[in-house]
Design a protein around this nucleic acid. Structure first.
Lengths: 227, 227
DNA sequence: AATTTCACCGATAGTACTATCGGTGAGGAA
DNA sequence: TTCCTCACCGATAGTACTATCGGTGAAATT
């Protein structure tokens, strides 16, 4: 009741925020197929035609959603790295490295679900953005692992580190969603699993030049890429 | 040119196969949004209205696609387990356990992409099917890991084994898709990474009752489930 | 106070898709 | 040969959504 009289631009911005919020909710519950200007406008409390006061067209809305998601993504990654650095010891630093992304996902699971879908849907308006975001996540994980002391000093190890990071990233997402679906009630157990997964993979990295043959057997026999 | 005169039911079945094949291709390249009776019928070389000779409606087509995918899934999982058992030694058995699913994905990546999308899209006609398939894959991986000698003898380890299996499964999918996208040219390297990931995780499992504290630090401090 | 701006509205043209219907001709049974 | 069956066809009714347009009233400007 203090400042209910809004200026026109404030009111417009508020409506725009409502549209974006509504769009995210619909995207999460009904997918890109279910996202229509009719539903978004109705959920935001305005007429369907007024949608076009705020966005040039539907494509434009998706683009804005992608941009906002990207910003939120970058901010949360910076924040995560900052917080992990504050851990008292190495073990806790390791656990933080995996706990923080897990908690971030659980706070805004709809963003991951939307990205996840777009990542594998070539027809999605957010497909390219989702691919970039996915690579950014992988590189973030790779940097995390490097920060834990596992550096790659040659091309082969660099590629391996990327693979490990991508694998760990996928596992993190899967466990977070499993937690949200109620299958894994204890998030700390998920942290344990991720820590141990990474330990195994990074053991390989450390011993790659010396005992590669013993660790993984004859490796060079390369199968070409699949069809 | 030998038996071009087909019976009517043979010809009908052929058309049906063409429709299913076309639907899968469109689903892969354009997503569920782009899957229309117009496109499917045209790609199969028949009139749009003739679509309804073969399927009651679009939903029916999706259901059939799900069923066929399920069959193919179960067959390929059985086949994979059979082949892995034939490996000459333990190391090769381990590698086969991860190589076989990787190769299976690379042979039919469109199936994984379609499932992946539906898995995270509540509006998808194949959503429930994709969730079940995902759990089936996880349990398949869990059985594989158990076959490698890592058994869970209590409730906590059973849940951990499930988490490890789900994580490894997600990593497998991610690496296979990365390989297909050209980021990881050597599939054998992906096998190495998966083997090492699993080794790390299963080390935790084996030592869970005895040396849990040394392996992962204080573990019991349980944080509740997230929001 | 007079005028302009503009966020929002209802109506609607245009587009794309789903599903039905009556017809047709070649396969198959009598 | 005669009749029936049915996979396929074109046309079309019905539905859902996108995007545009002229109008309206309150905020903002003069």
């Amino acid at each position: 009741m203090s400042s209910t009289p809004l200026t026109r631009s404030e009111a417009k911005d508020l409506t725009r925020r409502r549209l974006i919020r509504a769009a995210l909710a619909i995207l999460d519950t009904e997918g890109e197929t279910g996202l229509t200007t009719v539903k978004v406008a109705k959920a935001a409390g305005i007429a369907q035609s007024s949608f076009y006061v705020h966005f040039r067209d539907k494509q434009d809305l998706l683009r804005v959603l992608g941009d906002e998601g990207g910003d939120r993504l970058r901010r949360s990654m910076r924040e995560a790295r900052r917080r992990a650095r504050e851990a008292p010891d190495v073990t806790e630093h390791q656990r933080d490295t995996f706990r923080i992304p897990l908690e971030a996902i659980c706070r805004h699971p709809e963003l991951l679900r939307i990205l996840h879908r777009a990542r594998h849907d070539p027809s999605s308006s957010m497909h390219e953005f989702a691919k970039e975001a996915s690579l950014a996540y992988r590189d973030h994980h790779a940097a995390d692992l490097a920060a834990l002391g596992y550096t790659a000093d040659n091309e082969r190890d660099r590629l391996r580190l990327e693979m490990i990071a991508e694998g760990i990233n996928a596992a993190t997402n899967a466990l977070a969603l499993g937690h949200l679906e109620g299958r894994y009630p204890d998030l700390e157990e998920a942290v344990d699993v991720l820590v141990s997964l990474s330990k195994g993979a990074l053991r390989m990295l450390k011993s790659s030049s010396a005992a590669a043959a013993r660790e993984a057997g004859p490796v060079a026999g390369g199968a070409g890429p699949g069809g």
